[in-house]
Computed example of a mutant assay.
Amino acid sequence: MSVLDRARGGDTGAFAELIEPFRRELFVHCYRMLGSVQDAEDVLQETLTSAWRGLGGFAGRASVRTWLYRIATNRCLNWLRDAGRARPGADPAARADLPAPTRTGETIWLQPIPDALLEGLPDDTPGPEARYERREAVSLAFVAAVQSLPPRQRAVLLLRDVLGYRAAEAADLLGVTEDAANALLKRARSISFERPAAEPAGAGRGEAGRGEAGRAGAGPLSARQRLAASRFADAIEAGDVDAMVALLTDDAWLTMPPAPFEYQGRAAIGEFFRHVGLADGRRRYRLVPTGANWQPAYGCYVSGRAHGLLVITMRGELVSAFTRFLDNATLPYFGLPRSL
């Protein structure tokens, strides 16, 4: 008797064996859809519960993997439609003390994902329609850009350009016509790529992987890049704004999702960090190295207490963007304590 037949017969061990090869990639798919590690965990659990209950109706016309992606995608869409789960954004008027931002961007919800939760994903190209490399498709630039899309555009972009499903397959998974799926994809691509390539990762409406800046951080970092990221962190710990700024590209971005304030360039970022981040020398950080979205990351601590997470995007041997997450909720996923 096959594993599928045993699972259909109510064997929970067989069901676990059936879905285990896909658990990690389904979780990452939910993360891309929702931009939140916590929400992705919840929706994955809903997906597996629904799969267990609906296993008797699985006719086998598609693979188990595709069937699970259908459930997961539609669970994510339901989650996004639930107005009760809408998260409040930052109120621009509430921080009148901030230096004037380069731009007030879109308010998006975004959390970093630990590298440990990305391990074990398939290394090969998922399908013939895939346009993104495995690392590129979990970079902060890409995930942030995806969060700016309406839910169904978000879903079709991930199904086609990340997972590599053909147009007819994606349409079937979403329960729409092929023409409708193609129209959603066309619109999603135009929105994702509307920001110029010179504006790199970390901002909510990034180019998401096209051009050098959009692709920054997509591949494995060299030893020299990792050393440069470490020097950048050392400069922040030392409160040395000049040394920190010297390691930025001319067009670097500082973003702080879900706060919409964005700062570009060495002068603007230096002013922000000198007067707000470091509070004119009154605040000192201790940074604990980790990894997020396959990018260098650091747990931030002030006076021994957790103060969020910093994720760095490298272009060459300079920092092209850094994203400051003030929420401590994801620290346990990184194995980071609430206090030192």
Rank of each mutant, 00 (worst) to 15 (best):
V28Q: 01
V28C: 04
C30V: 01
C30S: 10
Y31K: 04
Y31Q: 04
Y31W: 13
M33C: 01
M33I: 00
L34R: 00
L34I: 00
L34K: 00
G35C: 06
V37K: 08
Q38S: 09
V43P: 00
V43F: 02
V43R: 03
L44T: 04
L44Q: 07
Q45A: 13
E46Q: 15
T47K: 00
L48Q: 00
T49K: 10
S50C: 06
S50F: 04
S50E: 13
R53G: 13
G54L: 04
L55N: 03
L55M: 02
G56K: 05
F58W: 06
F58H: 08
F58I: 05
A59I: 13
A59V: 13
G60D: 10
G60F: 11
G60W: 12
R61S: 14
R61K: 10
R61G: 14
S63I: 09
S63L: 07
S63W: 11
V64A: 07
V64M: 11
W67C: 01
W67H: 02
W67M: 02
L68G: 00
R70A: 11
R70M: 08
R70G: 07
I71W: 09
A72R: 01
A72V: 01
N74P: 03
N74I: 01
C76W: 00
L77D: 08
L77M: 09
N78D: 15
N78S: 13
L80N: 03
L80K: 10
R81G: 12
D82W: 08
D82T: 05
D82A: 12
D82I: 07
A83M: 11
A83Y: 12
A86Q: 13
R87V: 15
P88L: 12
G89W: 07
D91R: 04
D91Q: 07
A94W: 06
A94D: 09
R95S: 13
A96D: 10
A96E: 12
A96H: 09
A96V: 07
D97R: 09
D97E: 15
L98P: 01
A100Q: 15
R103M: 14
R103C: 11
R103N: 11
T107P: 13
T107C: 10
